[in-house]
Design a binder for these strands. Structure first.
Lengths: 276, 276
DNA sequence: AGAAAATAGTGCGCTTTCGTACAGAATCAT
DNA sequence: ATGATTCTGTACGAAAGCGCACTATTTTCT
């Protein structure tokens, strides 16, 4: 819980990162959307919550785990959808979106390998009241909601772990609510890119400017201008459908204070009580 | 849980309410800030969550309950404060605020008798990472966090009730985050006034325009103009330090869609499983 | 009673962002 | 290969909201 308001991650600096070349032709996913042939092994799991489980809980849940793949833009939960499954992202980034009357879908929170999708199912909600979509291609571990809920009820450590994340997530959304009325689009853009970058595990973010504009509730043209400014400052490179982060430290300087509060410490992933 | 996205309350209509005269001299609170002489009786409790407890849980908790009074503006939890007590508002309205670097304190959520303050303490957080302040004078039932947490851990129905509220609260904040970047100050003002009115139990809201501006993250002058517009339309009356709601239905028409989603159904208060 | 503080009303120029539109470039589909 | 589609860059006027400043009125303090 005390990690919820974490310092910026250690890798933050002002040096330019090694930037891999952008693949000009995005390779279509060859992976199946679901792997029914068995549960994942520990070394196939990158989700921090799962890696923080006690040995007992992990072994209890492992037979229930399945690896699933999402493509960017894919809807994970629609509004009103039942919570049949709970997802623990490995290397994907997901967004929780609020649907507005005019059709706009505004992002309210970002989830990656530090969290899970569908916590509400654990605390009694039967269906989603916000949308959740995949922001990037990637995999997640899924567990049937009913199974996890039953274990959750009797496992204090699991409760503490998952509800602790829920609390962190609420903090993230709170900050976003305040951010939206106080900080410029350019600042919000930097904060958002950093949040996604933290979770994506790559410098090459496959995002269109229009998508970003929708998430932030701004005009595409405003995003274009802001991105070009950042590109001039060599903080990122921009290609059709791709944004490559070049200088995290520089982006952090341009971001609003919110990033420092919203960023999550990713330092625990190797300190799993199970791995030790 | 299904009440989280509730229809507008039944009392919503387009008729003008009977408006009580504004007390010109606000009477200072004569009440003590804390009543140590005993626990409240059922008829002194107006909090929906407490009224929804099972008989067993209620009787178990009742000796731990104390009635406390807050004055508007009073800090209930500061940032970093320990969660010694959990509060169940009876007839007061509280705000959760995000503190910004420039000193601004922006509201992210409203809590009244439909909820509780300090849920985070139940799920393992040791200290508050947002501020909570009293928006109006009023009373709340307080319970020591440690006591409630211990009962909470073993009482599934209590868990379901309180976590269900937490889920509703997260939904409220989500909507607010989206609202802030899509709706005009005037719309947000109407939504906010309605939210406070729902919880305050009076048409006469003791609020200064400056307070409202701070909550919404807008200029005081913007609020002044918007309020005067509403007054011209006879939806409310405005006196120094007071706003009197005159026409709820009219306000709902001016409010953004968010009010419909954020409003809470207050219809359950007499359907307590205990009272039945 | 008189001074001080708090609250509310108003105005003006400025910045940000919006809405909209159009054109060029990159990519996709056939 | 070529036409269709998607994505990005740019422009211009309009609107919302800001920052600031000043005044008037009400309330509080002494």
């Amino acid at each position: 819980m005390t990690t919820s308001i974490a310092l910026k991650r250690e890798s933050s600096n002002n040096y330019n990162w090694q930037v891999p070349p952008i693949p000009l032709n995005r390779t279509p996913l060859a992976k199946p959307s679901f792997n029914p042939t068995g549960f994942p092994q520990l070394n196939q799991i990158n989700n921090e919550l799962l890696l923080s489980l006690s040995k007992e809980t992990f072994l209890q849940l492992q037979p229930e785990m399945r690896t699933v793949y999402f493509e960017r833009g894919q809807t994970i939960y629609g509004i009103g959808d039942p919570f049949d499954f709970i997802y623990f992202p490995n290397n994907m980034v997901a967004s929780r979106l609020a649907l507005m009357e005019d059709g706009a879908m505004i992002e309210v929170g970002v989830v990656g390998r530090e969290g899970l999708l569908g916590v509400a199912a654990l605390i009694g909600a039967s269906s989603a009241n916000n949308m959740t979509v995949a922001e990037t291609d990637g995999s997640a571990i899924r567990i049937r909601a009913k199974v996890l809920r039953d274990i959750f009820r009797h496992d204090f450590k699991l409760q503490s772990l998952l509800l602790g994340y829920y609390h962190d997530f609420l903090t993230q959304i709170s900050q976003r609510a305040a951010c939206r009325c106080r900080h410029s689009v350019a600042q919000q853009l930097c904060t958002w890119l950093l949040q996604v970058h933290d979770r994506a595990g790559t410098n090459d973010l496959a995002l269109t400017q229009e998508t970003i504009a929708n998430r932030l509730g701004a005009r595409r043209a405003s995003i274009t201008v802001a991105i070009n400014e950042l590109e001039k400052a060599a903080l990122l490179r921009c290609k059709r459908g791709h944004i490559v982060i070049c200088n995290r430290g520089g982006l952090e300087n341009q971001a609003c204070e919110c990033y420092g509060l919203l960023s999550y410490s990713f330092e625990n992933s190797l300190q799993s009580s199970f791995i030790q």
